[in-house]
Amino acid sequence: MEKYAVIVAGGSGLRMKTSVPKQFLLLRGKPVLWYTLTTFLDAFPDLQIILVLPEQHLDTGKEILRTTYDPDRIWMTTGGETRFHSVRNGLKHIHKHSIIFVHDGVRCLLTPELIRRCYHAAVDKGNAIPAITATDTIRIETVNGNIQVDRDKVRLIQTPQAFFSELVKSAFEQDFHESFTDEASVVEKLGVKINLIEGESTNIKITRPLDLLIAEKVLEEREMGL
């Protein structure tokens, strides 16, 4: 089956306290985004990537994709006002029956194995959303104060989120709603059951300086085969 990945990389450097958008920060000498692109290229030899970037950063994106080993499988488009609109822009370039992955460009530590598991689960059930179990105690704010909830029933959602193309493209024909925080929430609005699969604890989103240090350590250990 055809395979496409819409990789959304529209972040800024605000929480990083840097003028450089976080997807372009360097990890072991290479941009964060380079690792994300390379991992998707490694996952399947026939997978095509649509990279969604703010218009002002397209030239930087071109420079990065040229450093990958198969830039012909990557093309770019511009983002929109919100993540929802950016994903919609990426989906417009896909016209074949396929499995479509949607991924945060700054989740650069995912593995090819996770991508493949998402693919097979999506083929089987129509969608696949990686998630991990919460390890901290969880409390929820209510009108009467805060209450503890069973953390074993809490799942922390990750990307890539994988769907049959017809399903996700149809979902993104809806008008934007503030409850759309990820692709699963958009698809769920159609009344579709969301299928969770096991994610990866190292599949973190690079948002703070500490995340860069963690990512450096993870990559170092992988290079050493640990």
Score class of each variant (00 low, 15 high):
L47T: 02
L47K: 02
L47W: 03
L47G: 06
Q48I: 03
Q48Y: 02
I50M: 06
I50E: 01
I50T: 08
I50H: 07
L51S: 06
L51G: 05
L51K: 08
L51Y: 00
V52T: 08
L53H: 05
P54F: 07
P54D: 14
E55T: 11
E55S: 12
E55H: 10
E55K: 12
E55M: 10
Q56H: 07
H57D: 14
L58N: 00
L58R: 14
L58P: 01
D59V: 13
D59N: 13
D59C: 08
D59W: 12
D59L: 13
D59I: 12
G61F: 07
G61E: 04
K62P: 05
K62W: 12
K62H: 14
K62N: 13
K62R: 15
E63D: 11
E63W: 00
E63A: 13
I64P: 10
I64Q: 06
I64T: 08
L65M: 15
R66Q: 13
T67E: 15
T68L: 11
T68C: 12
Y69Q: 06
Y69V: 01
P71K: 11
P71E: 02
P71Q: 08
D72F: 09
D72N: 10
D72I: 08
D72E: 14
R73N: 04
R73G: 00
R73F: 00
R73M: 01
I74W: 04
I74K: 03
W75C: 09
M76A: 09
M76Y: 03
M76L: 15
T77S: 11
T77P: 11
T78K: 13
T78N: 08
G79S: 13
G79Q: 04
G79E: 06
G80Y: 10
G80K: 10
G80V: 06
G80T: 05
G80P: 07
E81F: 10
E81G: 07
F84E: 03
F84A: 07
F84I: 06
H85W: 15
H85L: 02
H85E: 01
H85M: 01
S86T: 02
S86E: 00
S86F: 02
S86L: 02
V87F: 07
V87D: 05
V87T: 11
V87Y: 07
V87A: 08
R88A: 05
R88W: 00
R88V: 01
N89P: 02
G90E: 07
G90P: 15
G90A: 10
G90F: 08
L91H: 00
L91F: 00
L91V: 04
L91M: 07
K92T: 03
H93I: 03
I94G: 14
I94P: 14
H95R: 15
H95L: 04
H95Y: 05
H95G: 04
H95C: 04
K96D: 15
K96E: 15
H97Q: 13
H97Y: 09
H97A: 12
